[in-house]
Design a protein around this nucleic acid. Structure first.
Lengths: 217, 217
DNA sequence: ACAGTTTTTCTTGCATACAAGCGCTGTTGA
DNA sequence: TCAACAGCGCTTGTATGCAAGAAAAACTGT
């Protein structure tokens, strides 16, 4: 793989994981020095990330890590909810034993992380769970789009799980989702996923509040 | 705007409009000579298009216009159907008079193009209609994603409308979609859009058949 | 004559050099 | 003292040069 592609993944990971703060400037020279390459592959990586929306570029003013306005962020969560609902519906229709097993395994993983009271661990298991749902849709394109958006929203999801009692509630919702998919209940699976992902009411307030001080523990 | 951005749009337009055939090679030197610039902005444009999936790059082997396998293409149409369904549901829930009027205007445009028996004209009006639906969702992110995917599928949609009687049927479906949205029938609007966009049965056969000889009239 | 190998050429990928804006700061004038 | 303008420096955007790798062609051995 080329340097540019490696850098693209690397920088994307740093954004998703939160190492690179939202809104921070991505200086080409600085990144080039840090990774020991010239500006060319750095630029190519940043442009690709800009095309996917993870970073924003203003002409002649460089690139920054995207920090969407709250209203756009809400729209992104809403779109995510709709995409997950679609995955759930398709999964309920097409479930094969292999995917059913994967769902149960992922659910068990979430449960284990919750009982360990390990928020970071739950976060990871949650990621796995949703990935399994995407794959169970048996629609490779939809699954990839969903995964891409999930990753893009990862920094904000992380904030959400800090809210008290969110983890047990999330797990209960996961159980309902799996039950609906396994039962072949298309509408039920879609609705369960939609309401699981959507950000409304208190959760919206929590999200916006978290945005103000993203580095505060 | 920079050269690279202009070139990105220009090349994208040529792909979407079918001027650049699916699967054709995009030679950097050739494009550079054609547009009177160096390879650098060409590369940057191609990389951005690759990030959005419109072109594919193999390491050390250049870029080609993406020509997805039939099964992936089908998945893309399915995902498109789900996204449009989501737009429709939200539009039905949130419809404001301004959007209602825009829907009626777009519908009238489609009707006019049909009565003129102008397939290219209908194609354009169809594009407008769907754009209006996306906007009516009042979700800027979802609307943009839907539009992006719509553009990416444009070459194939064009093929579909060549099928006899597809245009009148499409128009009838548009009417049902508008009726459901205006009536505030969320589930109905979603289902109407899903079945309007989905490719199944004969239409799938037609699509695959069209792929074999995309340049044959 | 055919197949395998080698060489050549052409393209990509990265580095470096150069040009052109934009912002910042310092100075000047009111 | 404050505001406005000019000059400077830093960053981006584009061009060019160079190296490495892959495809194609030619050559050699059987």
């Amino acid at each position: 793989m080329s340097h540019a592609q490696r850098l693209r993944q690397r920088i994307e990971d740093e954004i998703v994981s939160g190492e690179l703060a939202l809104g921070s400037r991505l200086d080409e020279n600085q990144l080039a020095a840090r990774f020991g390459v010239s500006r060319t592959p750095i630029r190519e990586a940043l442009l690709q990330l800009a095309a996917t929306g993870l970073v924003q570029t203003k002409p002649r003013r460089g690139a920054i890590v995207s920090a969407p306005e709250p209203h756009l962020l809400l729209a992104m969560f809403e779109a995510m909810a709709e995409m997950e609902a679609a995955c759930g519906r398709l999964a309920a229709r097409r479930l094969v034993p292999e995917d059913a097993e994967a769902l149960q395994t992922a659910l068990a993983g979430c449960k284990a992380a919750m009982t360990l009271e390990d928020p970071e661990g739950y976060y990871a298991e949650n990621y796995v769970f949703h990935t399994v749902v995407y794959r169970a849709s048996r629609n490779a394109f939809l699954a990839e789009q969903a995964l891409s958006l999930h990753r893009r929203l990862a920094p904000y999801r992380r904030l959400q799980l800090r809210v008290r009692q969110r983890v047990p509630q999330s797990l209960a919702e996961h159980e309902a989702i799996v039950a609906a998919i396994v039962a072949g209940d298309e509408a039920g699976a879609a609705e369960a996923l939609r309401s699981h992902v959507i950000v409304q009411g208190d959760r919206f307030t929590d999200l916006v509040a978290g945005l103000r001080a993203p580095n505060a523990a």
